[in-house]
Amino acid sequence: MAAAAAAGAGPEMVRGQVFDVGPRYTNLSYIGEGAYGMVCSAYDNVNKVRVAIKKISPFEHQTYCQRTLREIKILLRFRHENIIGINDIIRAPTIEQMKDVYIVQDLMETDLYKLLKTQHLSNDHICYFLYQILRGLKYIHSANVLHRDLKPSNLLLNTTCDLKICDFGLARVADPDHDHTGFLTEYVATRWYRAPEIMLNSKGYTKSIDIWSVGCILAEMLSNRPIFPGKHYLDQLNHILGILGSPSQEDLNCIINLKARNYLLSLPHKNKVPWNRLFPNADSKALDLLDKMLTFNPHKRIEVEQALAHPYLEQYYDPSDEPIAEAPFKFDMELDDLPKEKLKELIFEETARFQPGYRS
């Protein structure tokens, strides 16, 4: 834990890192770190609560700039109880001085990944967590956004079992017609939660990839272990087919990539493993919904509104309290091709509203 900075004593240090967030945020305490930044909790002297502050230093890398800009653009436009918001952003007053960006968010005690390492969940908890994931996802999908990296560590939890989806750095506007060349190379989302079509096709992607990830998360809540822990690309596919069985001819016809289709045709026939054999203690309604989410063919996979209306979630289902976005989200430009200098300018502009004396 960093010592509390005395008023006016300059930035606090946390594990050798400068955290320049005073005077409003003090009493910093280390939480963890990701690929390009550290997260601390801090005391907000204005709202009198502890908050989470993520320090991001992305400006050396085009990919990190892209992810940072995506996350900020999306989260500043989203407003939903099951999606983490941005409360404040701290950065230098000029673009030349801006080396880091500090993002202030609600402090959540833990995440689903940490929880599943230590606790076996009751059916009631599984049901409530799944409902909140789908409630947040309904809003995301209504904005025409794909999260693309749903996994237990991106689901934040607090002691009252509130759940918030975080990390929109890989999110995209849904565009089933656009052929994202190089899709697989830039697709760094965790393999275990990846839909089979991501490994088999490169053309376009749809909201059904997020539903697949939610199915993987439900299976993990039922058993405290990942359902498809593939060691590499082909191993991942083999794990999936080992449980779902061989795809039907109709399902194979959806695979545009001939090499991928021929690979699947070359494999020995596998039978589907019954879900109640894998999860003998699970609620039968939970397994019915799991089956509809972990469907090989993305066109037959359940959609988020149908999933919310499934009998497993009937005690929570309330369409009048499951809000959607006001308007579909649009990125003005494809960020993939922009140089990091341009992305830095866009991050600077996007964060201006939090600067003292800002006038829109």
Rank of each mutant, 00 (worst) to 15 (best):
T94R: 06
T160A: 06
S246Y: 15
V188M: 03
H310W: 07
C216T: 09
N281S: 07
K270C: 11
I227V: 08
F348E: 06
I53T: 15
V39F: 02
G22D: 12
K259N: 01
R67V: 10
R91I: 14
K292P: 04
K151W: 02
R50K: 03
E81R: 11
R77I: 13
D179G: 10
D283N: 01
F296E: 05
P339E: 04
K272P: 13
F348V: 08
Y193H: 01
T63S: 01
L237H: 03
V18M: 12
L244E: 05
D177R: 07
E220A: 01
L294N: 04
W192R: 00
V39E: 00
P311M: 14
V104A: 10
A4W: 13
R301S: 01
P323G: 13
V304A: 05
D336W: 13
K117R: 04
N82I: 00
L137R: 04
N224K: 02
K48P: 11
I72K: 06
L163N: 09
R277V: 14
L234Q: 01
D20T: 09
P176A: 04
V304R: 05
P323L: 09
L130E: 03
P339Q: 00
N82V: 11
K48Q: 06
G169D: 02
N224V: 07
L267R: 13
T94W: 11
I347C: 13
L278M: 05
H232K: 11
L116D: 10
F331G: 14
L107W: 11
A6Y: 15
W192Q: 02
R277L: 06
K138Y: 09
E326L: 13
S122A: 12
D177K: 13
D288A: 07
V304D: 01
P11K: 04
L234A: 08
I90V: 11
E334R: 12
Q132D: 06
T181E: 05
K151Q: 01
I324S: 07
R277G: 05
P93R: 10
I140Q: 03
A260Y: 08
S266K: 15
K272C: 07
T118C: 10
V173K: 02
P274L: 06
G8E: 04
S360P: 01
S122I: 05
I72D: 05
D175V: 01
S223R: 06
P356G: 11
T68Q: 11
G22E: 02
F183E: 06
D288E: 00
C254E: 13
S320E: 09
N253S: 07
I198Q: 06
Y193M: 03
E186Y: 08
F183G: 04
E341D: 00
C127Q: 09
V101W: 06
A309R: 11
E326C: 12
L28P: 07
N281T: 00
G34Q: 12
L237Y: 05
S223C: 03
C161F: 01
R301A: 03
M13Q: 05
D177F: 09
D321T: 14
V104H: 09
Q62C: 04
L346T: 07
N47F: 07
V273E: 00
V273S: 11
R135L: 03
V304L: 08
S153I: 02
H180W: 07
L308W: 06
A174P: 05
R15W: 01
V14D: 00
L308Y: 12
I240L: 02
F296S: 01
D167C: 07
F129T: 13
P311I: 13
C166Q: 03
F329V: 07
P339M: 04
H269C: 10
T159H: 08
Y113H: 08
A219N: 03
A92P: 15
S57I: 11
P356M: 15
E326N: 14
M98N: 13
Q236P: 15
L258C: 12
P196G: 02
L343G: 09
E71K: 04
F19Q: 07
F228I: 00
A189P: 03
E197R: 01
M199A: 05
K231T: 06
D175L: 06
P247M: 09
E109S: 12
Y64D: 08
G204L: 06
A174R: 08
K272R: 04
A6N: 15
A171T: 01
N262C: 13
L150A: 12
A143I: 09
N262S: 07
L335M: 03
G182A: 05
P339N: 06
L346E: 07
I90Q: 15
P339K: 05
K340E: 01
I256K: 08
R70C: 01
Q355H: 04
V14L: 03
E314H: 15
F348Y: 02
L157F: 05
Q315I: 13
G242C: 00
I126M: 05
Y193T: 04
K231V: 14
T68H: 12
N281I: 00
D88N: 01
T118P: 01
M333L: 00
P58D: 14
Y193V: 01
W212S: 01
V214Y: 01
A309Y: 14
L287H: 10
N27D: 07
Y317C: 02
L335V: 14
L264P: 01
A3S: 04
N257C: 08
N257L: 07
A171V: 03
G204S: 12
V145P: 05
I240A: 07
A309M: 15
E197C: 07
N82D: 08
T185K: 02
R24M: 09
N154I: 00
K340L: 08
E96C: 14
Q105F: 14
F129K: 06
A307Q: 06
L308A: 13
Y205T: 02
T68R: 05
G10I: 09
A195K: 05
L252N: 11
L218S: 01
D149W: 04
F331Q: 14
K203L: 02
D106I: 15
D283P: 14
A5T: 04
K270Q: 11
F183D: 06
I324T: 14
D44K: 13
E220M: 03
R353C: 12
D283Y: 00
L150T: 13
F329Y: 01
T159G: 09
N82W: 04
Y187Q: 04
M333T: 11
R194Y: 02
A7K: 15
E12W: 13
L218C: 06
D88Q: 11
S57A: 14
R225W: 14
T206A: 05
K55I: 01
E322A: 00
R79M: 12
L130D: 03
N45E: 10
A286C: 15
Q132L: 00
Q97I: 15
N253D: 15
R301H: 02
D88C: 14
A143W: 13
L289H: 06
I84F: 00
L287R: 08
R67S: 01
V101S: 05
L150I: 12
E12P: 15
G8F: 11
N87A: 14
V104F: 02
P229T: 00
L241F: 08
Y358P: 11
N82Y: 00
Y131R: 14
N297C: 07
K272V: 10
D111F: 08
A325Y: 15
A92F: 15
P298T: 00
I165P: 04
I198V: 03
V145E: 00
L28N: 14
I83A: 15
T159P: 03
L267H: 13
M293E: 06
I217K: 03
N87I: 01
Q66S: 05
L335H: 12
A92Y: 15
D332V: 01
L200Q: 00
F354I: 01
V49P: 11
D291C: 09
D167H: 04
S284K: 11
F331M: 15
A52P: 05
A5I: 14
L267C: 09
L170S: 10
H178V: 07
D291R: 06
Y113K: 03
R15T: 11
L308S: 12
Y43L: 08
A143V: 04
L289R: 06
S142I: 14
T295I: 10
S320N: 13
L234F: 06
N47T: 08
P328W: 09
L134M: 00
S57G: 14
R15N: 09
S153P: 15
L289W: 04
E305H: 15
L75A: 13
E341L: 14
N257A: 10
L163C: 13
L76I: 15
A42D: 14
H269G: 09
A307T: 05
D111R: 04
C166I: 08
T110R: 09
Y139N: 00
I211C: 08
R91S: 00
T159Y: 05
S208Y: 00
F78M: 13
D288I: 07
S360W: 09
E303V: 03
S320I: 10
L69W: 15
D175I: 12
L287G: 06
F59R: 12
I86T: 15
D318M: 07
L121C: 08
L69T: 10
V14R: 09
N144Y: 00
H310C: 14
V46W: 07
S29K: 13
H125I: 02
V51H: 13
C65A: 08
Q355M: 06
I347K: 01
I31P: 07
D291L: 02
V46T: 15
G85Q: 13
A327G: 11
D321G: 07
K231Y: 09
A2L: 15
S266C: 00
D88Y: 00
G22Y: 06
I90L: 14
